[in-house]
Amino acid sequence: MIETDFILNSFDTAKITNGSVTWKTPSNIALVKYWGKQEPQIPKNPSISFTLDACFTLTTLEYQFRQLSGRDDNTKFNFDIYFEGEKKDDFKPKIDKFFERIEKYVPFLKDYNFIIKSRNSFPHSSGIASSASGMSALALCIMSLERLLSGVEMTDAYFYKKASFLARLGSGSASRSIEGPIVVWGKHKEIKDSSNLYGIKFPSKIHKNFKNFHDTILLVDEGEKQVSSTVGHQLMNNHPFAEQRFLQANENISKLSKILQNGNLKEFISLVESEALTLHSMMLTSNPYFILMKPNTLKIINKIWDFRAETNSNVCFTLDAGANIHILFPESEKETITNFITSKLLKYCYKNHYICDRVGIGAKQLSI
């Protein structure tokens, strides 16, 4: 599909004057990372991710028809946002920018007063993709309203594809949080129907080794990230190693596609850990440069390497743009790896905090 396929040309706000909708939308963890983008939120390289389950955002969108005497380009979006029960005016500029970007595709936004109520099941802004789950949840709520207003029957396939398209305009990685268990975002010649405009479910059969895969997240640091993802992406624009990195990511998508189908866990480990360290190396060599890992991040990585060498386990790690570590392992090793984590690794976590998660199936609409 192309951009114009997502423009809503006909809708009737008189049909729906008020109501609310709630979506529970997961975060995701990229296996092949996207780092670097161009306007409007187009990735410089494709990425592929596990959709998570326990790490989610729960968002309710309340809407009330606005009685406007006149509406023009100067009419402002009208909304309030509450996060974890507290009014968050400092979140409003980001949402306002998101509404500006998507208004062309959902032109009814200025016809309503909105109240956005949101909460996370995990610490905000600490290296877990809160913008991914948050923006995708809001995009799904808006799509639910569009479905009511459009007056035509909308297929689920179109609904989710447009939701991913809209979510991308709020946060690139949000395009990967609509469906599951594995999502590809970004055009790749070997991935059928892949697109820079939205994420798609991995189109090939997934080997049983990757079914019910686990992701235990060790919260090394629950504070604010040293650098936002937005700033990090911008640093790729003049990065001396950027073009080679984009080529590498495309090659790794090809390799990972085969691995996900053939079930080779050793090759999975090598590729996923290399991708994680490459992401951080790009930040280490940018201008200005940043170190996103903490001392305990490195201690945990070395403990994982030692454990794997001693036991031939299939445990591995990946990192997002922060200090926290995602420990990935197959269902068959759940008991062994859980014991390893609790006995050897929790002491390196902030207040022993960690989250047990696994690969999930995607977003779900709730009735509240």
Rank of each mutant, 00 (worst) to 15 (best):
G85R: 10
F65M: 10
E100S: 09
N113Y: 13
H124W: 02
S126A: 15
Y112Q: 01
D90Q: 05
N78I: 07
Q64R: 08
D111N: 14
V106C: 11
K92G: 00
S125L: 00
E86Q: 13
S126C: 15
Q67A: 05
I115L: 13
S121G: 01
N74D: 10
K97N: 13
S126F: 06
Y112K: 09
E86K: 15
E84S: 09
E84V: 04
S121E: 10
E84D: 12
D89A: 08
D90T: 10
T60P: 08
N113A: 14
I81K: 00
F108N: 12
T75E: 14
R66T: 06
Q67K: 15
E103T: 11
D90K: 05
D111G: 00
D72H: 01
E86F: 10
N74T: 12
Y105M: 02
Y82P: 05
F98H: 01
R66K: 14
V106H: 05
D72T: 11
F83V: 11
K104R: 15
F114Y: 14
L61G: 08
P107Q: 06
G85W: 02
S69A: 04
G70F: 12
P107F: 09
Y82N: 07
Q67Y: 04
P93R: 06
F99C: 07
I116G: 13
I81D: 08
T60N: 13
S121W: 04
Q67C: 02
E84I: 03
L68V: 12
T75A: 11
K117Q: 15
K94T: 02
I115V: 15
K117R: 15
D80R: 13
S121L: 04
K94M: 07
K117N: 15
E84T: 05
T59S: 07
E84L: 08
E86V: 14
G70C: 06
D73M: 00
H124T: 13
G85F: 03
D111V: 03
Q67S: 13
N113P: 05
F114V: 12
G85S: 12
F114K: 06
F99T: 07
L68T: 13
S125G: 04
F77M: 03
D90I: 09
R101C: 02
K110M: 01
I116S: 15
F91K: 10
E100G: 10
F122Y: 06
F79C: 09
I116N: 12
K87R: 14
I115M: 07
K104W: 00
E84K: 07
D80C: 04
G85Q: 00
F99M: 08
K92P: 01
Y105Q: 10
K110L: 11
N74L: 07
H124R: 04
K104V: 02
D80A: 09
S125N: 14
Y105C: 06
K117S: 14
